[in-house]
Computed example of a mutant assay.
Amino acid sequence: MRKLPASTVMSLVVVAVTVLAFAVTWVIRDDLELRVIDVVLPVVALAGVLLRERWPVGALITVIAATLAYFPLSSLDAPIIFLPFVVLYTAAERGHLIAAVTTGSVALLAMGLGETGDVRHVDDGAFIMIAGWVVAAIAAGSVTRNRRAYLQEAERRVREAEHGKEEEARRRAGEERLRIARELHDVLGHNISLINVQASAALHGLKKRPDDAERALRTIKETSKETLRELRTTLGVLRQVDEDAPTAPADSLARLDSLVGASGLAVRTELSGPLDRVPVEVDLAATRIIREALTNVARHSAAGEATLAVAADDGRVLIRVDDDGPGVPFTEGSGYGLVGMRERATALGGSLEAGPRPEGGFRVLASLPLDGAS
């Protein structure tokens, strides 16, 4: 069963009580003759009460006009004096405060002027009481409207706060997924590419250069072991498994020899500046960029050698990786390598450029501010 709105229920109650009071008054005053105006004006006022939700200002004017005309013209003292209070409250509650104040003031003024003659319908005490009820009805409607607006604003802010929290959670989740994907690409992509290069070298030199083949197989073994360790560590973090921390030291600019040696390339290094005092975040980003750049040299450069220059100077870490290959952009077929390196650089307020060199080959140039972690 459909539930009626509270305003509709109140309207029906007001109408029912008014009709009942009118009928009782008529029965008690059976010595009076009922005229048309005694019925028409109360019906008009009751109709205005029923329609006040849809047309609050029109109902306000109609009900007060009918009430003001009823008492000096009718022969029956019906209790419709309470109906104007209802429409005054509704008009103020719907935001028509000026209309309610103006109409109520005009009604009190007309009522006061009408009571200056010989025949008085209300005494001074009743007039003051009616004026007080007019003010109270308008004030109650205004307070109700303000309270509803306050509650709606509070609900809106709560919804916006919840929506903001959801957006922030989604943003953080996206950033975390991107970070994990970048870490997996940097670690696994580098090691698997190295395994592939060393496996090719072992196959080519298995018969002619067995010593080189053995060295390549040993590199494959160590690299695959390192790959499994890195993968196990990453998955352990994702699963929140309490495992023993890795015993091997992390990549660092202060240990570039091990990083370069694991690349399987002939790398000529040029180092300058206090690389052992670089902030941790910058150090990690720099080594990841170097590892990815060397990985792509191994993948795409036929020369098999590269030049690595790292300098910490003037508040920045400058990284340059050059190769003498055919100059094919390593973004072709290398997935998210260049994207990941650029994201690491820009996340710290730095920059990264990559492209063919005028003299041939390919170059990766990165600039990372030393205060990028702050």
Rank of each mutant, 00 (worst) to 15 (best):
P5V: 06
V9L: 01
V14C: 10
A16P: 02
V17I: 14
V19I: 15
D30Y: 09
L51N: 03
W55T: 10
V63A: 04
I64F: 06
S74D: 08
A78N: 07
V87H: 01
L88R: 03
I98L: 00
I98C: 05
G104T: 04
L109P: 08
E115I: 05
T116W: 07
G117A: 02
D123Q: 10
I128V: 15
V135K: 01
S142E: 06
A161M: 08
E162L: 07
K165H: 10
R172P: 10
R172S: 13
R172M: 08
E176A: 10
R179P: 08
I180H: 00
H185V: 11
D186F: 11
L203R: 05
K208I: 14
E214A: 15
S224K: 12
E226D: 13
E226P: 03
T227V: 11
T227W: 00
G236T: 00
V237N: 07
R239S: 02
V241G: 04
D242L: 06
A245D: 06
T247Y: 03
R255M: 03
R255A: 11
G261K: 15
S263L: 07
P279A: 11
E281D: 14
T287D: 06
R288W: 08
I289Q: 02
L294Q: 11
V297T: 13
V297F: 11
G304T: 14
A306W: 10
D313Q: 15
L318G: 15
P329Y: 15
T331R: 03
L338Y: 15
G340Y: 07
S367T: 15
G372D: 05
